[in-house]
Design a protein around this nucleic acid. Structure first.
Length: 285
DNA sequence: CACCATGTTCCTTG
DNA sequence: CCAAGGAACATGGT
């Protein structure tokens, strides 16, 4: 479920559900996700603490808590397959539950099939994140400066969380299509106009996804996988319709009809239209 | 059985 | 030293 828009929608969803709730009990079923802390340490810190709010930074969730008068934060990340939701206390925990916290009548559940996600007191991983793409810190000038140096393909560069925090494999392809730029073009070779187009394309792609995702009911405790870009829990798939190139290899480009291509960059799939996204892929150094 | 998957981190290579 | 590439992590779907 994990790119910026999904995490943003999830943070907004969880905030009112967790706010003012007190953690009564913590259970860790997979210690890997709370590393480098132990179950005992987490229980020690969290038991009795109260939620103040839920925020997002890049693809990370920040749970703001208070133990008495002492504020602190818990960091969450969904990895590839993580889900976080609130369900009735009596309800059975799903398969692959990594952590659960009882909140009285309800319980907060972190479930993650592949266990790549995190729920930890170790906040170090957000220290190196780049600017929030939808915030004021993200500027065209800063973006241009960052791209100037690198000979890496622009698609790969967009996944660099120190460049922009929150763009993932799906929206990187989507943003490049929107900007009409070849994913293989070396970052440093983008023209001023292309850089500007990409800057706006990234922001527009992400905000549109948040808008669409916000319209979808997130009844996680009903068994939804929460992957709103793959459809909501009732089976409809409106958000998927918004994706113009991702996972559409062979299908005609909505703009020109050319079949969408799939290539591999940095060991990950990239989808693009050869006609709408022309450009030089010369790997000059 | 083979290959694919929304992400990050660590190790190796050049 | 740094940038770039790849593997590892772990499980499931097709």
């Amino acid at each position: 479920m994990p790119e910026l828009p999904e995490v943003e929608v999830l943070a907004r969803h969880l905030d009112p559900l967790l706010k003012r709730k007190t953690i009564r009990e913590v259970r860790v079923y997979r210690e890997r996700v709370i590393r480098p802390y132990s179950e005992g340490e987490l229980q020690q810190e969290l038991t009795g603490a109260r939620f103040k709010g839920v925020k997002r930074r890049g693809k990370f969730l920040l749970f703001q808590l208070k133990q008495g008068r002492r504020p602190f934060e818990l960091l969450g990340h969904l990895g590839m397959t993580g889900r976080m939701f609130v369900q009735p206390a009596k309800k059975d925990l799903p398969k692959h539950t990594a952590v659960s916290m009882s909140l009285g009548k309800h319980q907060f559940v972190f479930q993650d099939t592949r266990y790549f996600g995190r729920l930890t007191l170790d906040l170090s991983s957000i220290a190196w994140l780049g600017p929030e793409p939808l915030g004021n810190e993200f500027t065209i000038d800063g973006f241009r400066e960052a791209l100037k140096r690198s000979s890496q393909a622009i698609k790969v560069k967009l996944l660099d969380q120190t460049l922009i925090a929150g763009v993932g494999n799906i929206y990187a392809s989507e943003a490049l299509h929107r900007a009409g730029i070849s994913p293989q073009k070396a970052s440093k070779r983008l023209s001023g106009r292309e850089t500007e187009r990409l800057y706006h394309a990234v922001r527009d792609t992400l905000s549109n996804a948040i808008d669409t995702g916000s319209t979808i009911p997130l009844d996680f405790d009903g068994g939804s996988d929460g992957l709103f870009y793959f459809g909501s829990s009732d089976g409809s798939e409106y958000q998927h319709e918004e994706l113009l190139v991702y996972d559409r290899a062979g299908e005609p480009c909505g703009a020109c009809g050319e079949p969408i291509r799939r290539i591999v960059q940095a060991a990950r799939s990239t989808f693009y239209c050869r006609v709408c996204q022309r450009g030089n892929s010369a790997p000059a150094n």
